Simulated assay, not measured.
Amino acid sequence: MDLTKRVGMNIRAIRKSQNLTIDDLAEKCDFQSPYLSDVERGERNITLQTLNKILDALQVEPGRILIPENKSSEGEDKIRKELLQLLFNTLEDKDENDIRMLLNISNEIFGRLKNN
């Protein structure tokens, strides 16, 4: 996963762990909610100044965004959900045939991995 998506995922996970909505965080950062949503999805390549505003609003050190702490099983579940959401977002604009093709390919790959 590229750094932009990883940082965005980590921002979202921290925001949610603090029970903040996207609107709450956007207000604290003085950003628009759609912009911040793009950041969390890794669709915006943000500047260090923007990252600093987000860090200040979340009251976390840069390491929490770049290198998250080891997660408990609850944290791993959050990461899993975030990854599933990223996958869903990737497939959202695809047609039914493309989605079925991906499903067949993934079933084939996981089937072969299971047999090894």
Rank of each mutant, 00 (worst) to 15 (best):
L48K: 11
L51I: 13
R64C: 03
D24H: 10
I67G: 00
K53N: 12
L48F: 15
N10Q: 10
R41D: 04
D2S: 12
D30W: 01
F88E: 11
T90A: 13
D2L: 08
S37C: 11
I99E: 01
N19Y: 08
K53W: 01
F88D: 13
E40A: 07
A57F: 03
L51K: 06
D38I: 00
D93W: 00
T4R: 14
K71T: 03
L91P: 02
E74N: 09
D95F: 03
N45P: 02
T47Q: 12
E27F: 08
T4V: 14
T50G: 00
L48Q: 11
L55R: 06
E27Q: 14
E76I: 04
D24E: 12
Q32C: 01
D2P: 08
T21P: 02
E40Q: 08
I54N: 12
Q18K: 15
T4G: 01
L102P: 00
D56V: 07
D95G: 06
L102N: 01
P34S: 10
T4Q: 15
K78D: 03
E40F: 07
K78N: 04
D2V: 01
G8F: 07
M9W: 00
G75F: 04
I54E: 12
D98W: 07
N70Y: 04
L102C: 06
L51C: 12
M101Y: 14
F31I: 11
L25E: 05
R44Y: 05
T47H: 05
S33K: 14
T4N: 14
V39H: 10
D24V: 03
D23A: 14
T4I: 13
L58I: 10
E82D: 05
R100E: 14
N45Y: 02
R64V: 06
D38N: 13
L51W: 07
N52F: 13
K94A: 12
L25S: 08
L51S: 10
N89H: 05
I79A: 05
K94H: 13
D77A: 12
Y35W: 02
V7E: 01
E76G: 04
T90Q: 13
L48M: 15
N10T: 03
L3M: 14
L3F: 09
G75E: 09
E61N: 11
P34V: 04
L58Y: 11
L25V: 04
E43A: 08
T21L: 03
E82Q: 05
P68R: 03
I65V: 15
G75C: 09
K94E: 15
I99H: 02
L36F: 09
